[in-house]
């Protein structure tokens, strides 16, 4: 592992629904951050980003977001990305509500 490279996940919004999604190791787009592929190699991260960006009819605005390993899978390290895992912070709606129903 390259020590100067912060681990990443590939994230985007679904084209049709606008939902926040994460690229998994088996090439699915998951709503759940913990299911994302945690990428610890910079070259592999660029390859995965290219793979995501090519899916123009599936997702919009793919990018690499910093993440860290957690007990259940990757966890975000930036508050913006934490918001994106849950949905709006004003009250309980959006993804945080949808995923529990």
């Amino acid at each position: 592992m390259n020590r100067s490279f912060a681990p990443k996940v590939v994230t985007a919004n679904r084209l049709q629904e606008g939902d926040v999604v994460y690229l998994t190791a088996d090439d699915r787009w998951s709503l759940v951050h913990h299911e994302a592929e945690l990428i610890e190699d910079e070259a592999h991260a660029q390859m995965r980003l290219l793979h995501a960006a090519a899916q123009k009819l599936v997702v919009v605005g793919a990018y690499l977001a910093d993440a860290k390993p957690g007990p259940n899978g990757p966890e975000p390290t930036h508050f913006r990305e934490e918001f994106r895992t849950r949905g709006p912070s004003n009250y309980h709606h959006g993804k945080q509500a949808d995923l529990t129903t």
Partner: peptide, 22 residues
């Protein structure tokens, strides 16, 4: 249409893509 081509067209019709959704 690519997203780059479509973005200004949807914005002219009030449709944003925000943090969590459209």
């Amino acid at each position: 249409l690519s997203e780059d081509e479509f973005r200004p067209l949807r914005l002219m019709n009030g449709l944003y893509l925000q943090l969590h959704a459209y």
